[in-house]
Simulated scan of single mutants.
Amino acid sequence: MNLLNRRALAYVASHPMDFTVQCLKGFRANQGLLLAGAVAYYSLLSIVPLLMLVVVALSHVINQEELLLTVGRYLNWLVPGQSKPIVAEVGHFLDHRDLVGGVLVISMLFFSSLAFTVLENAMSVIFKHRVAIRRRHFLISAIMPYCYILSLGAGMLLVTLVAGSLQVLGEESVWLFGYHWSLNGVSGVLLYLLGLAGEVLVLSSIYLVMPVGRLSIWHALIGGVTAALLWEIARRILVWYFSTLSQVNVVYGSMTTAIIVMFSLEIGATLLLFGAQVISEFERVGRERPQRAAQPLTTEATQIK
Score class of each variant (00 low, 15 high):
L3V: 12
R7F: 07
A10E: 05
V12S: 05
S14D: 07
P16V: 07
Q22H: 13
Q22R: 14
L24F: 11
Q31E: 15
L33C: 06
L35S: 13
A36M: 02
S43R: 03
S43F: 08
L44Q: 03
S46T: 10
S46Q: 10
P49S: 12
V55H: 12
V56D: 14
H60M: 10
Q64K: 15
L67M: 12
L94H: 02
L94K: 02
D98L: 13
G101W: 06
L104R: 09
V105H: 07
V118L: 05
R134D: 15
A142C: 03
Y146I: 02
I149W: 01
L158S: 14
L161I: 09
G164P: 01
Q167V: 05
V174R: 06
Y179M: 00
H180F: 13
S187M: 03
G195L: 10
G198Y: 03
E199K: 11
V200Y: 04
V202S: 13
L203R: 08
V209F: 11
V209Y: 08
V212K: 14
L215G: 01
I222R: 11
G224M: 14
V225L: 12
A227S: 11
A228I: 07
I233R: 05
R236S: 12
T256W: 04
M262G: 12
G268C: 07
A269L: 12
A269Q: 09
T270M: 15
L271A: 04
G275T: 13
S280I: 00
L297N: 09
